[in-house]
Design a protein around this nucleic acid. Structure first.
Lengths: 128, 128
DNA sequence: ACTTGACTTAGAGCGCGCTCGAAGTTCTAA
DNA sequence: TTAGAACTTCGAGCGCGCTCTAAGTCAAGT
């Protein structure tokens, strides 16, 4: 009964560290992982999609507290689907706002770069 | 000689707290600010643009360490223009990468939301 | 003159998300 | 069989970017 993916290999596949995988389990983002007879963790291939989804939520700035709430809802089965959807919709709006802000700020930074290029040209023309 | 903007008003204008303004000055993001005869800080209207630019850099994820480097270059005058431009260009690339990642992740989250909607419809149809 | 509140400095403390260390057990390869 | 790497738990520690506290000074209103 010692099948499944050892933590090292699972870490490699998810891009998370073994430390982080244990931490995520500890704080309830991952359900308790099955063990080999030795006590070592054995991940299932099916755990991959969930960890990848968690990683997307983090990468888009969702706080760990909210991810914990989402994971808790998920453990409570299908009747939490609407609440999970609403949570994701709120996050979707946050991301869209963040994207809009980034684009505005990027435009301003791009202008600044152009301003520097202009200055460099005029400095070079009469300064050197 | 006590003209200029008191810290409270300047904080309100920039959206930073007075604490953060003092902190930024302490770590060299802001040049030492002029003082009234009382010792109280007096900001100049011209400081606003710089603080706003700093705020854009932070909002787009530039680490404070890099902002410190940028501020130090700026203090060294026009001959640092090319290096400042290169620093901003590198940051520009970082933002563009981040935007691309966010968009990919947002799309995946949007799909997940749609998946939930589909599930809710089919659950509702035969479950209720 | 006195109160109230904004300011000053220096340094401590905090919330976040990991990340690491210690001490002990188990697996793997020679 | 034995060395060394990988695993376990538990709790401490860290880097970041602020944020706050304490103790004191200064300014404005009554």
């Amino acid at each position: 009964m010692d099948t499944g993916i050892p933590i090292r290999a699972f870490a490699a596949r998810t891009g998370l560290s073994a430390h982080t995988l244990r931490y995520y389990e500890r704080i309830g983002l991952l359900d308790p992982v099955g063990r080999a007879s030795s006590g070592h963790r054995r991940y299932l291939a099916g755990d991959l999609a969930w960890v990848e989804f968690l990683t997307r939520l983090r990468a888009t700035g969702m706080p760990v507290r909210v991810m914990q709430r989402f994971a808790a809802l998920r453990r409570h089965g299908d009747r939490t689907l609407p609440e999970r959807r609403e949570l994701l919709e709120a996050h979707q709006r946050d991301i869209e706002q963040h994207l809009a802000d980034l684009q505005v700020n990027l435009a301003a930074i791009t202008e600044k770069i152009q301003h520097y290029r202009d200055l460099e040209v005029s400095n070079g023309q009469h300064g050197e």
